[in-house]
Amino acid sequence: MNALAIKKGSSGKSAYNLRNPLGDHQETHTLTVLVDNEAGVLARVIGLFSGRGYNIDSLTVAEVDHLGHRSRITVVTTGTPAVIEQIKAQLERMVPVYAVNDLTVEGQSVERELALVKVTGAGEKRVEAMRTSEVFRARVVDSTLESFVFEITGTPEKIDAFVDLMRPLGLEEIARTGVAAIARGA
């Protein structure tokens, strides 16, 4: 019976389009969730993750359609393929959710994060911090005689790299927005 030929992907909605859910390796996925911008909707999504033991690596939310009262939540999560599929199914069945997209599997996407990085110091370190920021195309948005606040945008990896370089140069404080992501193309 198991030899029965299965037409994979026989329909767009078919779960045959799922990747092998039996793998037990961890994967990181970026999901975007379009929701009604109603009271408690973020708590609902976060509660789903904490209640069912899923990971949240990063989460951002903001209204994207004022007239339609819709917000977009971008969540980066890590889990086995089966858990990722569960997360999507659990999100999709929530009443205020319009759509869930998995940017990691649905073709190419662009991911950006913004960070504000405060660095203090004087002398050679201060000069070095300034030089590094230019390489990373970070902007100085505030400066005093003993400090800079840099604004940097890019992929989370780029921001990680910048922050690592700033550490020995007097890194004081970091504020990160979390990831915003969008599919490429039309």
Binding site: N2, I6, P21, Q86, R93
Partner: peptide
Amino acid sequence: NSFKVHIDIDPSSINKNIHVD
């Protein structure tokens, strides 16, 4: 050793505990 079909109105019930064909 079975070929499994699962009918459910809730997509999150599918492939949650048992992988079906």
